[in-house]
Amino acid sequence: MAPGRECLGSRLLLILVVVTQGKGYPLNFSLKVLDGPTEPVKVGSLLTLEARVEPVPGHALKIYVDKCFGMQTRVLGQSQRMQSLVFNQGCLLGRVEPLPSWLRQDNETLWFTVPAFMLSDRNKEEKVYIACWLLVWSQKKVVEPGRKMCYYNSLSSRPSWYLQEGSLGNSVCHCCETVCPSLESFHREFPGEGRAHMLLVGPLVVQKAQTFWFEDHCTTLNELIVSGMAFTGSFGMVLMIVLAILGTLVACVRPMCRWPRMTWVRPRESPFQRELVTFEEALDSPVREEEERPAEVERGQS
């Protein structure tokens, strides 16, 4: 794999050229961004990419794009986030306007458009890369699910997947919604036919679309409200746990700290005290009889 550089305006876009050795001749692939932007592009704007293979004398080549991904780094395995641009062996993704499309210049050159993307929601500007797997087939091979150029048209009366070129109709693209079968066994017209090669282009600087001032403030306010609600909920939960622990401690310690209950115990009478009380009652009875007799005499006289 031999890297090359091409000056586009005031910026340099990396173009990878893949060379596949055959019987005395190479297959040279290239991938680049047409009209390379000299300034950051806005999210959603279309980027036009050119996939090309150099002609080989004596062989009728036809280039296809198998799949493409947007990445954050130059190394495929180090990108934390990825975005699918072309998948399922030639299904060009994009369901919002403006629609991505294919445009074949000739059998060896293929143009296609993809929307500019960002993989981070927090940054206002980001550098991204596009990795594509290119392959060539003989011009004698017909279009089929494993070798096609499909796109999704959301603006038609019946939104669906459509075939860009070929005479088999749109049924070839129905597998874009599921899994398209791969071409595992076939007769090779030349060495390297049907073998995918990864190429990388970038970095591309992409910016978020300009928003009104109140939209930014609303976004900040929404984040503040969500953060406040989360903090309030967390504080309430911690408070409930603390109160539950204190209630449990009080319930356990209260029986241990309870004061003994005061009760009045009537003193027990001794036999001597009973005898003394009986003697006092006996002395009081004659005095009461003498006091009652004059009262009865007065009643009889009256």
Rank of each mutant, 00 (worst) to 15 (best):
G90I: 00
P159A: 01
G24Q: 04
V201W: 02
Q164C: 06
R11Y: 07
F231K: 04
L246P: 12
V179Q: 13
V41R: 11
K208S: 05
K148N: 01
P3M: 05
C180H: 05
E54H: 07
F87S: 15
P3Y: 08
T48C: 03
Q78G: 02
L221I: 14
G58P: 09
W133M: 08
K208T: 10
P57K: 07
F117D: 08
M198E: 15
Q21Y: 01
G22V: 09
G247D: 11
F190D: 08
T220P: 00
A51T: 11
G70D: 02
G70Q: 01
R268I: 14
E280P: 03
L119R: 04
L12A: 12
K23M: 03
F214T: 11
R274E: 12
F190G: 07
M1Y: 14
Y25I: 01
E280R: 09
G166E: 01
L99D: 10
A244K: 01
R5Q: 03
E54Q: 10
G247T: 06
L49S: 04
V277H: 15
T109K: 09
L92W: 07
Q273P: 11
I130G: 08
G4C: 04
D284A: 04
V128R: 06
G44A: 01
G192E: 15
L119G: 02
L103K: 00
S101L: 04
V75T: 13
K62P: 03
L76C: 02
P260Q: 05
V250H: 13
V297I: 10
E54T: 10
L163I: 05
A209M: 07
F87E: 15
N123C: 10
M82D: 05
L27I: 09
S167C: 04
V75D: 12
R266L: 10
E165W: 02
G202V: 11
C7F: 05
C175G: 01
S30E: 13
C173H: 03
F87A: 15
R5H: 05
N123K: 15
F279L: 15
L224T: 12
H217K: 14
R95A: 05
M71V: 01
S302C: 09
G36E: 10
G192L: 14
Y152K: 01
L93Q: 13
V201C: 02
M229C: 04
P55I: 08
F214Q: 14
D35I: 00
P271C: 14
N153Y: 01
W111D: 05
C176K: 03
K67A: 11
R95W: 10
H217Y: 09
F87Y: 13
Q301S: 11
E189W: 00
K208I: 07
K62E: 11
E193V: 06
C176W: 07
G77Q: 05
G236L: 07
W161Q: 00
V18D: 14
I241H: 02
L199D: 08
A244L: 08
W111Y: 10
L134E: 04
T73P: 03
L16T: 15
L8Y: 01
V142H: 03
C176H: 08
L46H: 00
T113S: 06
